[in-house]
Each structure stands twice: as C-alpha cells, then as structure tokens.
Design a protein around this nucleic acid. Structure first.
Lengths: 388, 388
DNA sequence: TCGTTTTACTAAATCGTTTTAGTACGGATA
DNA sequence: TATCCGTACTAAAACGATTTAGTAAAACGA
C-alpha cells in the first residue's frame, strides 16, 4: 500500500507520453539479496496504527481506551450521549480529527438500512437534455446529503431492464428516470422526468405539452404561417407522441391542420444536429411547400436551419424555424432560435425533491401521479412574419 | 429535516391534477372495525417470506433447508462448490430466481472490501465538456461492472475540499477529476483529466497542448493572419494557462508574437456563450485591430461570432474565428466552426481505464504520471484566407 | 442508611454477505 | 481394520458501523 506512491518520486520527462518504469522493490532483482523484515522498515509506527490504512471506529476506541459504543454515541451526537462528560467528548473529537477517522459509509448504511443514495437512469449523458435535468437533480440532492449513481441505457432494451436491477442491488433508495421508458416493476419509489407511461408507483414530472403546443402554434399562426412542417422526435423519446398530437390539435383548432406530408421524423440516435438536418433535407427533396418548421428540439432546429440554408432558403425571411427546449446554444445560434423553453433544471430538481419526499414520508404518503411544469416561449430571430 | 420537503408541495400550484390517494390500509378508517391480524391478510404468504420485503440469503437458505454458506458458494460459482451435486445447485438457482433473491451489494462490499464504485468530480454537469468526458468514463467503467458517483464542485473552494472526502467515506475505490484542481492529498488512486498540477499519486490525462497550438496558429498563419486575438479561459479552468502559453510560443516561433492588448479573458462561470460574447465585445470596444480570433473553446467562439456580427464584421470574410474542443454544436453553427478537436470521449475513457488498471494491479504497478492525447484540426467555415 | 437515580460507560447483537475452518459420512486404499 | 479421501454440507468469524440492553460506581433523597 505504502510503496504504491514511492514510484512517483522518479524523475519523469515532462513532455507527455512518458510512463514511469515499474519500480516495486520487492519485484526487482536485488544485487544484495538481503531478507527484509517488514516490521523493521517502519520506525514511525507509533500508536500501533498502521500508517496509510484507514482507521476504524474500533482502532480509535482502542487508541482512546474507550468502547466503540461510546465513540459512536458521541460522534453521532446521539441524545443518549448526554451522560458523557464534555471532557471525554472533546477527547473523542480531537482523536478522531487527529487520526483522521472517517466512518465507513458501507458499514453504517448496512446497519441503519439507509444509503442516502439514489439511482439516475438517462438515455445518454452528453445529449444536453439529460445533463441539464441531472444538474437540477444534483442540486436538490446535495442539500439533502444524497449522492447518486448514474447509468445510461443508450436506448438499448437489455439495459432498460438490467440497469434498474443493478441499481436496486446497490441499495439505492429510489430511482429517477429521465426520458426513459419504465421496463421493470418498481420495487422502489420511482420518478420519471418526461415519462408518459402510467405505471403504478411511478411519479411523472412532465411538461404541460398542450400549453407548449398552443404557445408554439399560436406564435406561428399569429405571424401568418398556415403551412407548418413539424419535425417529430425519435420513436424512443417519450415526448415524441404527445408533442406531435398536441401540436396537431393546436393547429386544427386554428383551422390549419398539419398536413401529414409535412411531418418528418428524426431517425437515428445521434445527439447531434445531423438528424434534424437529414429530416428537413428529405422534406425539401420531396418538394414540399411550407413557411415554417416546428422542430422537436433545438438540436434538430439547428439542423433544419442548415438544411434550409443549403437550399437557398433564408431563416427567417423565407422560412421560420421554431425550436424546443431552449438549450444554451439556442440563444447564440445564428440566427438566434425562437424556442419553447422547458425548465429542465427545475424539472430535475422537482423530480429529486418529489423522490426525497416520498422517501422520507414512507408508505403513509399520497403519491402524486403527475406533476406538471409550464413551458414559456422565447422569441428570438428564427421566426418572422410570413412574407408575400 | 422532514419539514423541509413539506413546503415543496406548495410551489407547484400547477396542473398537478391527479394524485393517487393514500392507500395504506392500516391507516385508512375502516367501516367495519375488525381487528386485523397481519398474517391473515396475506393468504399467498406461503413459505414464510414477507411479500414486498427483499429476501436475504438467510431467508433463501431457510426456505431451502440449507446453510447460507452453501448458497453463497453455489451462487458465486466458487470453485469450492465443486463437491455440491448439480441437483442441489439447480435447486438453489431455481429458488433464487423464484424468490427474486438479489444480493445486497452493501453487505458484500463490506465483506470483500471492494465496492466496484469510483467517484467522479466535475466542475458542472451541463457544460458540455464534462458531459462528454463522463460519457467516455462511463463507457469504460460499464464494461468493468463499475458504477460511479458524480459530484459537481461548481468552482467552489469548500466543495473542492469536501467532495473528495465524502466520496472516500462512501468507499469509492478511486477518483476521476475532470478539469478540477486537486485540493486534497489523495488517499486513493486519482486520475485527473486536463489536470496540470503535478500531485503525487495523481495521473494526468492531458491534451498535447503544444501540438494543439501549432495546429491552430499554423492554420491561421497559413491563411495569412498576422494579428491574432486570443481568448483566454477563465482562471478556474486548468487548461487556461498552458493553452495561452503554447499559443504564444507557436505564434512567436512564426515571428508574429501575440499582442497582449489582443488577449482577453473569459469572466464568470456561466456555461453559455455569453462570456465569449462579452470578452470580444470589450476587445472591439477598445478599438483593437485583428484579423482572427483564437478562442478558448467552441462555446466562447460562438459568442465571439455573435459579438463580431453585431459590429458588422463578417465571419470569416472580415475576421476568422477558430474554436477549441469540437463540441456537437460546432459543426452546425452558422458559420460552421473551424476548431481544434479534443477527443473528450477518449480522454474520459482513457482516464477510467488508467484508474481501473491502477486498481487491479494494486501496489506493484508503475503509475504513469501523465498520458497525453493528440488534438486534430477540423477545418470548416469560420476561418478563411485574410482578405487583401 | 438504604434505595433510587444519575453518571459514565460497555458487551453483545445486528445489518447481509463471504470465507475459514471445520464435521459427518460413505467408500476406496493399504 | 485402520486410514485416507471425496462428498455434502455447516458453524462461526469477519467486514465496520449502530443500537439495545445492560453494569458499576457515585450522587441524591428520605
């Protein structure tokens, strides 16, 4: 254990690519074959505490001549420690600090049957969406002293079934799923962000999609758009269907039903704008005629703009493009995206808080089946009044 | 503690329509006040296994009339189970499946002193950079059946000291830090992605910055640029100083030293393009004269383009802009960013693999102090030959 | 002065596994 | 016939905490 770091002392050429040569003495052919007693090698071995090894409560108790019970009571500031004189308490705290005692969370969790850990399942970390939600989750968890294990399912069916089981084995107290179908019967409290399946025991945190569609279609309608193309999400995304349906409804309500030839679907699971680009390319290749595009998300809106641009169509002069999500990039794209904002951070934080609440209230608690949050429309440069 | 969450119910006046009514029978006022024996309520309570409660190895052993030892040996396919007849083994596996036995990872980890868990410390999840690296980390960890706990320090000094300690308490086997200064003495193997401090016991995974600067400055130089502005990173970013120094060196080598009046620093810790925008705005406000901007990253390059645009300067016609990182957004920005690509996914995956290797090889292993990866230049539309 | 309470602690059980060190028995070997 | 070996298992310790149920001595109250 100790000698692990000794090797680093070696002079290392600065410029990268340098690997230190293996130096473990015991493995090296020694010119004088002197048998070595390990004991003798460590003269600084006072207080019988093995340097380097973590010190346990028992070690600390022995060092102090007290029992682990007493230490536990004092260190956890249990009310049962009231009879322990302050002087002793002080001794204990001081020793704990000096010997750098760190309670073993594993042991504690096992005993008290509580891990202060939850599991988070996301489609993929780098898709922007998940990361923003995770940020909110983390913020809420941190204040409650919880940690979380993350797992990405990458849209693979086997992982959708396996990951929850693995997390449960690791004794997470609950699970937050982000934009992920629930393919397991929940043995723990589960909160799903953007989940539309109604599964017993699962709280869904969802956007008010109807409102979102109203905002988007209303905005385009008011600008004079009547032929609106819609980019539908990938099949695996839980929002895909509601998004499309609510948009259709909002359009129909205004007497401008969405032409089915004007809906294209995102294909493939790349988290880049590529998929949006391809989708709109195919729309244009079919010679369809429209004045606005309502994209599934900002990522695909950006791809759409590229596709239109390549066909010589200016955004927003010739075609308006409306995004969804309001990711960081939206505000600084050229042209800046008009978009329907989802409060992703808040959704994550609400999800985490809802989960924690369920955890702390145990079974005598009414589980909200659904919590909805409101979208807002952020008008920027990618939409404009229809020309002509 | 508990009441903290009660409030949460309030600020969601939204459309939280449907709530499942509390269903715990024992809490519900019963019309026929029959005293209930819990036993009687569960007729399917065969085999004395409490429905709902997870089944332990002991439960399973009792159910089978065998000892936990035998089950453990068999379930873990220990070579010591060779004497157990196949028939018994089969019985054990079947029962485990039927009663849905899931080993408690906590207990196992405690016993075998191995958690198969590492800790990851990042500045912030939603900054794109961290998420990409994490993606790589995860990919490498998954194949080794490791999980990881994530913690964000948000550039706060107290968290930089506290988080590693919390992770160690939770018995992580090692720590991966991403773009994070090491403010603790490592008691565990630590790998730092983009770490430039040389701390004993810490392996740094870094980009070959000199090469990156050569690629960038070389590209601009070859296009005829002689007055190049440089956007320096925030003070907290570990790459900030090397990046600037190597760029200066590469420029000086070509006889076009970077004018100090042409370097601006990113300020504030927003992960949006805002900071790059502000920086270049101030450069332009000073009336500085330059034909190219070498940005600290793609995010700030995009902000720079916006700032130039607002001043009527066309990119790349009037000013070339060179980014860094090659995030997903770079390819689809308008104009598409020419950028120095960092293999972030690979860096994460290399970091994880290096850590795992250190873990599995124990002390008799030579720790590479530094592993470097190579950048590439991706030429797109934001840079062009200097006009006239 | 005796009984009760308070003070200052501790022994041992417990959480759910794994692992060490067995046991008991039947059959083969010497 | 005694010994050894293989088979089929098990008891108990261990991991490192928390928690229950104490104990012994001192202080207090009647």
């Amino acid at each position: 254990m100790l000698d692990r770091f000794d090797k680093l002392v070696l002079p290392i050429p600065l410029v990268a690519r340098s690997f230190i040569v293996g130096l473990n003495l015991s493995n090296m052919p020694s010119s004088h074959a002197v048998p070595q007693e390990d004991e003798k090698l460590t003269p600084k071995n006072q207080n019988k505490t093995r340097e380097g090894e973590p010190v346990s409560l028992k070690d600390l108790a022995e060092h102090l001549g007290l029992s682990p019970t007493t230490l536990s009571l004092v260190l956890n500031k249990s009310p049962k420690a009231s009879a322990i004189p302050d002087e002793t308490k002080e001794r204990i705290f001081t020793a704990a600090r000096e010997l750098k005692y760190r309670p073993n969370y594993l042991a504690r969790s096992l005993r008290v049957q509580k891990t202060n850990t939850i599991g988070v399942i996301v489609p993929e970390l780098s898709d922007g969406y998940s990361a923003m939600v995770l940020n909110g989750v983390e913020a809420a968890l941190t204040t409650a002293e919880y940690f979380y294990l993350t797992a990405s399912h990458l849209h693979k069916e086997d992982l959708l079934e396996k990951l929850p089981r693995l997390l449960v084995e690791r004794q997470v107290e609950g699970i937050i799923a982000v934009d992920t179908p629930i393919r397991f019967e929940p043995s723990l409290p589960v909160v799903n962000v953007s989940g539309h399946d109604e599964v017993e025991g699962v709280t869904n945190v969802i956007l008010n999609h109807q409102h979102a569609a109203e905002l988007g279609i209303g905005h385009l309608y008011n600008l004079g758009h009547r032929r609106i193309a819609v980019i539908k999400g990938q099949e695996f995304s839980s929002d895909t269907n509601v998004r499309l349906e609510t948009i259709k409804a909002a359009a129909a309500k205004r007497g401008i039903p969405i032409d089915t030839r004007l809906t294209v679907q995102l294909l493939g699971d790349s988290p880049s704008s590529e998929v949006g680009y391809t989708a709109v390319k195919s729309l244009l290749a079919n010679g369809e005629d429209f004045t606005a595009v309502f994209a599934f998300n900002d990522i695909s809106a950006i791809g759409a703009i590229r596709a239109l641009d390549e066909m010589g169509l200016r955004v927003p002069a010739d075609v308006s493009v409306l995004g969804f999500d309001d990711i960081y990039a939206a505000a600084f794209h050229n042209p800046a995206l008009t978009t329907i904002r989802q409060p992703l951070f808040e959704m994550g934080s609400i999800a985490a808080r809802a989960l924690l609440e369920r955890l702390s209230n145990g079974s005598d608690y009414s589980i909200p089946e659904e919590v909805s949050v409101e979208p807002t429309i952020i008008v920027r440069q990618s939409t404009a009044r229809v020309s002509s």
